[in-house]
Simulated scan of single mutants.
Amino acid sequence: MGVSGWQHVGESDGTSTFQLESWSRFFDFLEAEIFSYSGPQRRSFIWRGQRRANWSLSTTLDRLLEVVGISDGPQDALEDVSKQHLERFKYASRGRRGLSPAALSENEWWSLGQHFGLATPLLDWTRAPFAALYFAFEDASVGNVPRAIYALNENAVFAKELEIQNGPSIEKGRVPIVEIVDPMSDENQRLVSQGGCFTRAPIGTPIEQWVQRAFEGSSDPILIRIEIPDTDRLGCLQALNRMNINHLSLFPDLSGASRSTNLRLEFEHCTVRKNA
């Protein structure tokens, strides 16, 4: 690694990859590479943490379609399957949303389903980079595979969305854009606590693949990939806990209380073994 504690290992077609020598360099990396940016184009990033850097930015619905063996079908056919899947969820949700439930848009229905475990075309992101760091390290990992944090330039994505929508007409199917989805529904309190939002890409298209196609030949960092060694997980989580970034603050429900209690046990006993 360089003196800074990270190195830039490659860029192409709107993507850029950095490798950090440890999670503790993430703070300095943000200041040097993200917050101190003074280029001509305004940048605003959303963030996502993943336990393994070799995982694609694919949605749960994409993975389910792959499992059932239809992920290679025509795009319009996959979109039809997606619509039918959502209609079934709406039907199954009858009488389960309380009295006089609010009307929801299509993306709000997907967001509600995402919250309760439905396979959806949405991918979770946060506007808080340290929350993304927490999500990257919250679970123990098997094998020495780096963890990853992704930063997606939402301003550039929105500009590309307008460009595509105003381009040649598409006769059938959903316009091949990536949407940044900010649900207004009150039925997912976790989104508020996490500074959460979603992306929605064409069915069967991981975010990194869409960026590479939509920004072919561009050297601008639309999608930044930050790889972090899979070491000192508890040290990372303890540092974030001191910043009040933990399961209690990010998941304001019994699930968060349970996970927070489990981590407390890890903190106490792993520290005892380490100091023994």
Rank of each mutant, 00 (worst) to 15 (best):
Y91S: 15
Y91E: 15
S93L: 11
R94G: 13
R96Q: 14
R96H: 11
R97Q: 14
R97A: 11
S100E: 13
P101L: 01
A103I: 02
L104K: 10
E106Y: 02
E106C: 00
N107R: 02
W109A: 06
W109K: 10
W110D: 06
W110M: 09
W110P: 07
H115N: 06
F116I: 04
G117A: 06
L118T: 00
T120Q: 07
T120M: 01
L122A: 10
L123M: 11
W125K: 11
T126E: 01
R127P: 07
R127T: 10
F130Q: 10
A131L: 00
A131D: 03
Y134P: 00
Y134W: 12
Y134I: 06
A136T: 08
A136R: 05
D139Y: 10
D139T: 15
S141F: 04
G143L: 08
G143C: 08
G143F: 12
A148F: 07
Y150C: 14
L152R: 11
N153V: 11
N155C: 10
A156P: 02
A156K: 05
A156W: 05
E161N: 01
L162S: 15
L162E: 12
E163L: 10
G167P: 13
S169F: 06
K172C: 09
V175P: 08
P176W: 09
I177G: 13
I177Y: 10
E179H: 02
I180P: 09
D182V: 00
S185W: 01
S185P: 07
D186A: 09
N188Q: 02
Q189H: 12
R190F: 00
R190M: 00
L191C: 01
V192H: 08
V192L: 13
V192T: 13
F198Q: 02
F198P: 00
F198R: 03
T199A: 05
A201V: 11
P202W: 01
I203A: 11
P206K: 00
I207M: 05
Q209N: 14
W210M: 03
W210T: 02
V211P: 13
R213H: 14
R213S: 14
F215H: 09
E216R: 14
G217C: 12
G217D: 07
R225W: 03
I226T: 06
E227I: 06
P229K: 03
P229V: 09
D232N: 12
L234T: 10
